Computed example of a mutant assay.
Amino acid sequence: MKRRDFLKRTSLASTALLLPKFLSGFNLIDEAIATGKKLVIIQLSGGNDGLNTIVPFRNDVYYQKRPSLAHQKSNLIGITDEIGFHESLIAHSNLYNNGELCIINNVGYPNPNRSHFRSTDIWHTASDADQYLQSGWIGRYLDASKSKSLDAIEVDDTLSLLMKGSKTDGIATKNPNIFYRTTQAPYFKKVVSHHDDAHLNEHNLGYLYKTMVTASSSAKYIYETSKTYTSKTTYPNNEFSKQLKQVAQFINSGLQTKVYYASLGGFDTHANQANKQKRLLKVYDEAMEAFIKDLKQEDSFKDTLILTFSEFGRRVQQNAANGTDHGTANQVFLIGSQLKKQGFYNPMANLSNLDSIGDLKYDIDFREIYTSVLNNWLDIDAKKVMHKSFKGLNIV
């Protein structure tokens, strides 16, 4: 049985592969408070409609293709004489005006896949459309940089492929207190107390116990470090805001973690899109506003880069249900105070030059963005992480 298949079939495989307290003597954590750059990755899951997020309100084709979904200029937050933010993106318009937002238009990849699951895997692994990788680009970053599991945290109950490496996986946890208390449960002490060296030499069991030891030390360190900071910022009362509040607590407490991942779902707007997207973008925007305020109050924003993506955009032509179907190219947002390029990185998509089924053509391969982040923000040679060579962009 393969290692990952084995883990998937155990009850210990989801959040952390938990372990009793008596193994906490295996000190796998550097106790010194770490400083340095942080990367926060946010996914708008389901395929956010980028064309109604950054809106070309002077484009006749836009209104022809979307007779009931197109936004009017009067409802938008102006960016230029031709383009505006969706009305829900008030905080992002302020970031734009402050020079803290870069909007990268027409991002995609060759031979795009319109399946949520497959396209998400492609974005998470940085693979080609016809290539199936078993490790995520952040997981491979952990491997290449010889980082520890706690150097990448997903604020969720389960770990995404994005965070899984060949040698080292990130950690998934929503609540460091619950994470730590669970590792102290007598049940886990009983389970692990029955192991012996022979078991540890078995490939699957050896990996399992090693991961459990790592989880135990990580849980204690994460809990004891993160509890030293209490946010003074008021966040909206929703699950996505709770995720970002937790990330802010991790960062502001001095946790050594380098990469965080959170997501907001619901963007698969096949029907009645206008109200759904308005609500979701409001949730996203207001949570981000609180999160960035929290970081700025503790002077952590200057060392934080935020990357927001969606696994694909939507079809240019609206459908009969006042929604949009799965499309291709989309925007990526980069947010930070150390951006080399602010505003728009490249022009809006040409709506008069669509592909054979009416989707946007991509200009920028998303892996060029990853390459830039790896080389210039996470300070590692991207060639050690990516399976192909990409030129990168001069943004960070």
Score class of each variant (00 low, 15 high):
Arg4Leu: 12
Asp5Met: 12
Leu17Asn: 10
Leu18His: 09
Leu18Arg: 13
Phe22Leu: 09
Asn27Trp: 01
Asn27Asp: 07
Leu28Met: 04
Asp30Ile: 14
Ile41Lys: 06
Gly50Ser: 09
Gly50Arg: 01
Leu51Phe: 07
Asn52Ser: 06
Thr53Val: 03
Thr53His: 01
Thr53Lys: 01
Ile54Arg: 01
Phe57Cys: 09
Arg58His: 05
Gln64Met: 12
Lys65Leu: 07
Pro67Ala: 11
Ser68His: 15
Leu69Cys: 13
Leu69Glu: 10
Lys73Gln: 15
Gly78Ile: 13
Gly78Cys: 07
Ile79Phe: 09
Ile90Asn: 10
Ala91Lys: 05
Tyr109Thr: 02
Pro112Met: 12
Asp121Lys: 15
Ala126Trp: 04
Ser127Gln: 14
Ser135Gln: 15
Gly139Glu: 04
Arg140Val: 12
Ala152Trp: 00
Asp157Val: 10
Leu161Cys: 08
Leu162Asn: 05
Leu162Gly: 06
Ser166Gly: 11
Asp169Leu: 00
Ile171Trp: 03
Ile171Asn: 01
Thr173Asp: 05
Thr173Gly: 04
Asn175Arg: 06
Pro176Ile: 08
Gln184His: 06
Gln184Val: 02
Pro186Phe: 00
Tyr187Gly: 02
Phe188Tyr: 15
Lys190Arg: 06
Lys190Thr: 08
Asp196Tyr: 09
His199Gly: 10
Tyr209Val: 14
Val213Pro: 01
Ala215Gln: 09
Ala219Thr: 14
Ala219Glu: 13
Ile222Val: 14
Tyr223Ile: 11
Tyr223Leu: 10
Tyr235Leu: 08
Ser241Pro: 04
Ala248Cys: 05
Val259Gly: 00
Leu264Lys: 04
Ala271Ile: 10
Gln273Ser: 04
Ala274Pro: 03
Lys276Glu: 11
Arg279Lys: 13
Leu281His: 09
Lys282Asp: 11
Asp285Val: 06
Glu286Asp: 10
Glu286Phe: 04
Ala287Leu: 04
Glu289Ile: 00
Ile292Asp: 00
Asp294Gly: 05
Leu295Asp: 10
Ser300Trp: 06
Phe301Lys: 11
Lys302Ile: 04
Leu307Arg: 01
Phe309Gln: 03
Ser310Leu: 01
Arg315Pro: 01
Val316Met: 07
Asn319Asp: 01
Asn319Trp: 03
Asn322Val: 03
Gly323Tyr: 07
Asp325Val: 12
Thr328Phe: 12
Asn330Glu: 04
Val332Phe: 02
Gly336Ala: 13
Ser337Phe: 03
Leu339Met: 14
Lys340Thr: 12
Gln342Tyr: 10
Pro347Phe: 08
Ser352His: 00
Asn353Met: 00
Lys361Ser: 00
Asp365Met: 03
Ser372Met: 09
Leu378Phe: 05
Ala382His: 11
Ala382Val: 13
Lys384Trp: 06
Met386Arg: 14
Lys388Ile: 09
